[in-house]
Design a protein around this nucleic acid. Structure first.
Length: 103
DNA sequence: CCATTGACGAAGA
DNA sequence: TTCTTCGCCAATG
């Protein structure tokens, strides 16, 4: 099993149509990591994690280097949940950012 | 152990 | 607003 389960646990709490950023997750952890570490964790997340609900701090989709198609997949999945993107391919973080309970 | 890479973030120009 | 630079933690060679 992965040592990043706390990261996956948080991502799994994000409801459909909502998003979180890598940095937000990183700081929200009981034992905080760097946003890069969270990105690495997500790169090998299990299949039951809604990875598409995690975007960068600018509200844009990620992964355009490893798998160019993945970026489209993420956007498609989010749009399917009702998330709207602007002309620059960004979403409204202030409105869509999910704030998980800390307990 | 050192250097490079990776689904990032904030600050400076 | 876009691009560059540095910092960050973990994995890989």
């Amino acid at each position: 099993m992965s040592a990043f389960e706390p990261v996956y646990a948080i991502v799994r709490t994000i409801p459909p149509g909502r998003v979180m950023t890598y940095g937000q997750i990183a700081k929200g952890l009981e034992r905080p990591l760097s946003p890069k570490a969270v990105g690495w964790a997500m790169s090998q997340c299990p299949d039951d994690v809604p990875w598409h609900r995690v975007v960068d701090a600018k509200g844009t989709c990620s992964r355009d280097r490893a798998d160019p198609s993945g970026r489209q997949t993420q956007r498609r999945r989010l749009e399917r949940e009702g998330v709207a993107f602007d002309a620059k391919g960004r979403l409204d973080l202030e409105a869509l950012r999910f704030h998980p309970p800390r307990g």
